[in-house]
C-alpha cells in the first residue's frame, strides 16, 4: 500500500513538471536533455566529448576544445542554428562532410547544440 502511495506521489511530481517547450534558449535544461541525447545515440563512438565518460572513440576530432572553434568543421559559422543543423545532418549542412546523419529530431539537435556550447562552463 505504502508503495502505491509513494508511486502516486512521484507521479504527481512528474505530472506537475511543465511540458518541454520549444524555445531555443541555451538553458541548463536544454543542455541536460542534450547530454542525454548524446548518450542515447552515442556520439561518443566517434568523438571524445567533455562530460561524456564513455565511449570516447577516435574516429573523429575530439570536441574537447570545441567551444572555441571559429568554424564548425572548418566550414560553417559557429552559431547555434548551424550547429544544430550540422549535428543532425552533417552532409546536408556541409556538403561533403564525412560525419553521417544522426538519428535525432530537430528539437533534440537544438538540445545537443546547447550542451556542446555549455560544455566548458562547468
Amino acid at each position: 500500500m505504502q508503495q502505491v502511495a509513494v508511486a502516486a506521489a512521484l507521479l504527481t511530481v512528474v505530472a506537475c513538471k511543465p511540458p518541454p517547450d520549444d524555445r531555443t534558449s541555451l538553458s541548463a535544461d536544454a543542455a541536460e536533455r542534450g547530454k542525454a541525447v548524446i548518450e542515447r545515440v552515442s556520439c561518443g563512438s566517434c568523438h571524445a566529448i567533455p562530460g561524456i565518460d564513455w565511449p570516447r572513440g577516435g574516429a573523429a576530432p575530439s570536441l574537447e576544445d570545441f567551444d572555441d572553434v571559429g568554424l564548425i568543421a572548418g566550414a560553417l559559422p559557429n552559431t547555434p542554428g548551424n550547429l544544430a543543423a550540422f549535428v543532425r545532418d552533417a552532409p546536408a549542412a556541409k556538403p561533403g562532410s564525412t560525419m553521417p546523419p544522426m538519428p535525432i529530431t530537430a528539437a533534440e539537435a537544438e538540445d545537443v547544440a546547447a550542451y556542446l556550447y555549455g560544455m566548458n562552463d562547468e
Binding site: C46, R56, G57, P103
Partner: peptide, 20 residues
C-alpha cells in the same frame, strides 16, 4: 553496448579499441 546506426557502425569499425 552501442545503438546500431550508421554513426556507431563507422565509429566501431574505425576505432573499436577506444570504445571497448
Amino acid at each position: 553496448i552501442l545503438p546500431n546506426h550508421r554513426g556507431t557502425m563507422i565509429g566501431w569499425i574505425a576505432d573499436s579499441q577506444s570504445i571497448k
